[in-house]
């Protein structure tokens, strides 16, 4: 009696994906506790950065650093966070326009805010290049 043939079968993504030059700069920046935006040829700064100007489709002109502090444009308070969401206590979602940016980015805020409130990023002790390197924003 011969031994049955055995072959390994591993479920996996058989590829890795590059973030491309623009998002690579953004996430490398987060690892270094910096927020990077994309400046379009018309001078508008988009954060998080996109490779192209969303209005014209043209390549953006350059990458620029923006502040990790900014203004709440709109927000929603959630009393019962869902399990996978960033904080396990009541928090606010907010679109935050960082100083130096012309667009707002989504993140969470720990603390009382209203539209127009100033907030500042609270960085994790250990940063790895993910959007969650910012643990949350807090009132500035």
């Amino acid at each position: 009696m011969t031994e049955p043939l055995v072959a390994p079968h591993v479920l996996e993504w058989g590829y890795t994906r590059s973030l491309g030059p623009t998002l690579t700069a953004f996430f490398t920046g987060l690892r270094d506790r910096k927020i990077v935006g994309a400046k379009t040829k018309t001078g508008r700064v988009i954060v998080p950065p996109t490779p192209h100007d969303p209005d014209t489709g043209e390549d953006v002109d350059s990458l620029v650093d923006v502040s990790d502090e900014g203004v709440v444009e709109t927000w929603s308070f959630v009393s019962h966070p869902r399990p996978k969401q960033p904080l396990d206590r009541p928090f606010a979602w907010a679109l935050i326009k960082l100083d130096g940016a012309d667009t707002a980015m989504l993140h969470v805020v720990d603390g009382a805010i209203e539209t127009g409130s100033r907030v500042k990023a609270k960085w994790r002790d250990e940063t790895v290049g993910y959007i969650t390197d910012i643990e949350c924003f807090v009132p500035a």
């Binding site: 953004f26 979602w93 989504l106 959007i131």
Partner: peptide, 18 residues
Amino acid sequence: YVLTPLWPDPVSLAALQA
């Protein structure tokens, strides 16, 4: 990359718009 890892649900996003 910038949104799904935060798990924003559609009701919360609609609330920002509202």
